[in-house]
């Protein structure tokens, strides 16, 4: 590879694992063309991100690839949600920002953000109480599984079971 930028550790790791990351991305996305796009993005990322000490380069690279996939999935879902939301409106059209008092440049994004937060809250309210308590301590208050188990005096596997229940309810409430 012709390359006049100084080789960061990450670029080297990328070159070593490119083939298996690509294979993984095909499985991950189910789409060979998209996998190629993402592996390109990944290459650009490894070049532009100043690489600090990376404990396990391969795992780091796979996680980077995972995040890029997730960015795309999220964007796709948001677009679907947006299209659906607008078609649900009587007007059938995006209101022009100029017609709104105090529009703000990212007013629409901010609103979508608030909507997403509201949908999350609404979804969390559907989670049964026991699972919700575990979910809240772990995901919102940031306690580890072990700390949640100690706090509630339950086993770690009970924590995992509660988290699975919570996620099932959230998925049902959030994903159409």
């Amino acid at each position: 590879m012709v390359d006049d930028a100084p080789d960061s550790g990450l670029t080297e790791i990328y070159q070593r694992h490119r083939t298996e990351v690509l294979r993984f991305l095909v499985a991950r996305t189910g789409n060979a063309a998209e996998a190629e796009d993402i592996v390109q993005e990944l290459w650009i990322k490894t070049r532009s991100v100043p690489s600090g000490p990376v404990g396990n380069g391969r795992a780091y690279l796979f996680r980077m690839a995972q995040n890029l996939v997730l960015d795309r999935v999220r964007e796709r879902k948001r677009r679907e949600h947006r299209d659906k939301a607008w078609s649900d409106l009587e007007t059938g059209a995006v209101p022009a920002a100029a017609e709104v008092a105090d529009p703000g440049r990212n007013a629409l994004e901010q609103m979508e953000d608030r909507e997403e937060a509201a949908r999350l809250m609404s979804a969390i309210a559907t989670v049964p109480e026991g699972a919700r308590r575990v979910f809240q301590l772990h995901k919102i208050d940031g306690l580890s599984h072990a700390d949640v188990a100690a706090r509630l005096n339950i086993s770690r596997s009970a924590v995992e079971k509660h988290m699975a229940v919570a996620m099932k309810y959230l998925r049902r409430a959030l994903m159409d």
């Binding site: 997730l70 999220r74 953000d113 997403e116 937060a117 999350l120 969390i124 919102i140 996620m167 998925r171």
Partner: peptide, 18 residues
């Protein structure tokens, strides 16, 4: 995808949710 997306959304909105 759903699990990862929900997890990221929670992460994004953690201050509000908290």
């Amino acid at each position: 995808d759903d699990v990862a997306l929900i997890d990221r959304a929670i992460e994004d909105h953690r201050p509000v949710l908290q």
